[in-house]
Design a protein around this nucleic acid. Structure first.
Lengths: 111, 111
DNA sequence: ATGTTAAATCGAAAAGTGTCAATATGATAT
DNA sequence: ATATCATATTGACACTTTTCGATTTAACAT
């Protein structure tokens, strides 16, 4: 599990309310940048910056058509991220809490 | 769905590799702060700061016992976060992409 | 009482982020 | 060719975050 950096990039991207809203907007189909822009009070350059972050982590894909750019969610990255979230939050074998001397109180008591 | 701020706090907390690792460590049981500290090259005050962020968003719970603090994951927040993630990434009714004039190309063509 | 230990808080430095206006790029229309 | 339009990039600014060393707090232990 050395994907920490890969997926924390995704979480960081989702860690901004406006970007989370954009993801929500894209959840039922692709949208043109100008359509997204309409729904926010935000400059065009700021939106472009947010879309760049969402794309760089793989969560969103951009597609050019003429002078427009259409954005949509990337299903594979979504599923992998969900899996990563489950991985780091669910119990597993060989975890640290099962090692000897993992508990400060216990350590003291064994002395 | 006005929980954007609430859950983006969680995502922001998970958006740091070290914090994601801490969550992973806690996934199979509670651990004392000093035990977590042992596993990282990080000052004690830095760890304390990371734990504060993880607790403030509700993802982690702290419990004092004598001079120690034990941390563990909060199952309810985990489940709610998972649900929020699914909500914003899955198709829903009445979404923007189904409105009229949602597509720049179409808008132009209709003129 | 005094010292020790675990953890939190404070203050500061460095790095990163969100935002905008201005400019650049690239496609299309005239 | 030239103008227009959608988007990306740049540069600047304020704000936030990460990190550390130093200090404080609270709980034991002697």
């Amino acid at each position: 599990m050395e994907n920490y950096l890969e997926y924390t990039k995704v979480f960081k991207a989702l860690g901004d309310p406006k970007r989370a809203m954009i993801v929500d907007m894209l959840s039922c189909g692709e949208l043109c940048a100008c359509m997204i822009l309409e729904k926010f009070e935000m400059s065009q350059s700021t939106l472009s910056h947010h879309m760049k972050l969402l794309c760089e982590c793989g969560f969103v894909k951009g597609r050019n058509e003429g002078k427009w750019t259409y954005y949509s969610l990337d299903a594979e990255t979504i599923n992998k991220t969900k899996q990563f979230f489950c991985d780091i939050t669910s119990e597993k074998e060989n975890c640290i809490c099962k090692e000897d001397g993992n508990c400060c109180k216990g350590c003291d008591e064994n002395e």
